[in-house]
Amino acid sequence: MFLLDVFDSTIKKFKAQTANVMTLTNLSLGGFAIIFAIEGNLRLSLLLIFIAALADRFDGMIARKLNIESELGKQLDSMSDIISFGVAPALLLYQGILNEFGVPGIFFTVFYIACGAFRLARFNITESDGYFTGLPITAAGCLTTLSFLAIPFLPGQTFLFIIIILSFLMVSPYKLKKV
Rank of each mutant, 00 (worst) to 15 (best):
L47T: 08
L93F: 10
P152C: 12
P173W: 09
S28F: 15
F168H: 07
M61C: 13
I68W: 09
P155N: 12
S147Q: 05
G105S: 10
S147V: 07
L24K: 05
F153I: 15
S128C: 09
S167T: 08
L91Y: 01
A16L: 08
N67A: 15
A139R: 00
F85K: 03
N124H: 07
T145E: 01
F161L: 11
L91M: 13
I106T: 15
P104T: 11
P152E: 13
A55P: 02
S172L: 12
L176H: 05
F14R: 08
L44Y: 12
A117R: 09
C115T: 04
K13P: 05
L154W: 13
A52W: 00
D8W: 13
I165K: 08
A114E: 02
L47A: 10
T145V: 02
E127Y: 06
N124A: 07
M61K: 10
N99H: 14
D56K: 03
G116D: 04
G86S: 06
N26I: 00
R119V: 07
P136I: 01
F2K: 12
Y94I: 04
L27S: 06
G86F: 04
I164P: 01
N124F: 08
F32Q: 05
G134P: 00
F118R: 12
L46P: 00
L76S: 05
F36L: 12
L48R: 00
L169Q: 08
F101E: 10
S45V: 04
F118V: 15
L120N: 03
F32I: 13
V179C: 13
Q75K: 09
P136N: 03
D129K: 11
L160W: 10
S167A: 13
Y112W: 13
N124Y: 06
T25N: 03
D77I: 02
G30N: 05
L76V: 09
E69Y: 05
A55H: 01
L72M: 13
L169T: 08
L93S: 06
Y94C: 08
T10F: 14
L120E: 04
I34L: 09
S80F: 03
T145A: 10
L66W: 12
F153N: 09
A90L: 14
L92T: 02
A121Y: 08
L29Q: 01
L149A: 10
A16T: 11
I49Q: 01
I62H: 07
L166W: 01
L120Y: 03
D5S: 12
L72G: 06
F118M: 15
V21A: 11
L29A: 07
I113H: 01
L154A: 13
M1D: 14
T25D: 04
F123Q: 04
A33Y: 00
G60T: 06
I162Q: 02
L143V: 14
N20E: 06
G40K: 09
G141L: 04
L98F: 13
F148D: 00
M1L: 15
K13R: 11
L166P: 01
F148R: 03
Y112A: 05
R119H: 09
L149C: 14
D59H: 03
R57L: 15
K178S: 11
F36A: 06
T158M: 11
L27Q: 03
F7H: 15
G156Q: 08
F168I: 08
D59V: 02
A55K: 01
T145P: 00
L54V: 15
L54Q: 04
N124P: 04
